[in-house]
């Protein structure tokens, strides 16, 4: 009954949680503005992942020098953001907006996002095959990862952890500043709260929606690139991880960007660290079942606290617990 957590395991858990945070924030953002739960969100991340892969493949060439990482990774993540943002914008402009204009129900829109997910899966698979012929760096464009490139230690932590935290914190701070300090951000918050009234006050709600899809897609693209630091990437990886992303957003209450951040950590660390700790304590290999953790979170949250963690009145809960003693 020894808890055996290696630093690498902890690092990987944090990396995973960071990607969930990035993805959950985007999912919540588009849900807030366009009221659509986007089931293609995971595949938007894969669009970013393959953009990063393409840049890395071209720039690393066959002889990889770890000393010259900054340029390909910097460019790769920029490409990941742009590709994800572009795909997100297209999803909104070509599929969701026309359907909304025709008066589709939320259910219809949700199913349409499943359709988008299938299309993205197809496109990503075709792309993976083309890329393979173009530049066989690793011999395959499936099951690839970038872990080896970012494993070296910088100030005690692996480079990947630094990059991942840097991208996540940078993105969240930028989003926070946009929403609170800029005129457009205030307009975004106004149209999240009451789109009809925001419009009346001269806010271009359609532009707000487009920007939210650009940001959500861009964040997803970055997250896809970050995923390659911990796990093997396939065109379908995003469609699988989207369950955990939904869990994170739902735990966060779906109505709160801060909730999505908290939810990302709660779900991400539970899936990785908690299952490992419980396995070590109980002696049962629970890590095998870690895929069930997001589902458990979704069910429990919807049953017990449908408004998510941000909707719970913690102070009242604590005082009730205290008075019971």
């Amino acid at each position: 009954m020894v808890i055996n957590l290696s630093p690498v395991y902890i690092e990987n858990s944090l990396l995973f949680a960071n990607t969930l945070v990035m993805l959950a924030v985007g999912l919540t953002l588009t849900y807030l503005t366009t009221k659509v739960p986007n089931f293609a969100h995971g595949s938007l991340a894969m669009v970013g992942a393959y953009a990063l892969f393409t840049i890395a493949a071209i720039m690393f060439g066959n002889q990889l020098s770890q000393l010259q990482l900054a340029q390909p990774l910097g460019l790769g993540f920029a490409a990941a953001f742009l590709a994800g943002a572009f795909a997100g914008l297209l999803e909104y402009l070509l599929v969701l907006r026309p359907l909304q204009k025709r008066g589709s129900t939320p259910l219809g829109l949700m199913i349409a996002t499943l359709g988008v997910d299938l299309i993205l899966l197809g496109v990503l698979n075709i792309f993976a095959d083309i890329l393979r012929g173009m530049n066989p760096v690793t011999g395959t464009t499936r099951d690839w990862r970038l872990k080896a490139y970012v494993i070296q230690k910088v100030a005690g932590l692996s480079l990947g952890v630094w990059i991942s935290f840097g991208i996540m914190i940078g993105s969240l701070v930028a989003l926070y500043l946009l929403l609170t300090r800029t005129r457009f951000g205030i307009a975004m918050r106004a149209s999240i709260e009451n789109p009809a009234l925001a419009q009346v006050l001269g806010v271009n709600v359609d532009l707000v929606n487009m920007v939210s899809w650009i940001l959500a897609g861009g964040f997803a693209g970055l997250a896809g690139g970050m995923m390659a630091f911990v796990q093997r990437i396939n065109p379908a990886t995003g469609s699988i991880e989207v369950v955990a992303v939904f869990a994170a957003s739902i735990v966060g209450g779906l109505h709160s960007l801060l909730g999505a951040v908290v939810g990302g950590y709660v779900v991400g660390l539970s899936e990785t660290l908690l299952t490992k700790i419980l396995s070590d304590i109980t002696g049962v290999n629970l890590v095998t079942y870690k895929r069930a953790v997001p589902l458990i979170f979704i069910i429990v949250t919807l049953l017990v606290a449908p408004e998510g963690i941000m909707g719970i009145n913690w102070r009242r809960l604590f005082s009730r617990i205290r008075s019971r003693k």
């Binding site: 419009q199 001269g202 359609d206």
Partner: peptide, 8 residues
């Protein structure tokens, strides 16, 4: 015209 233009 879209509403935000009319508002202006």
């Amino acid at each position: 015209l879209p509403p935000h233009r009319i508002a202006k």
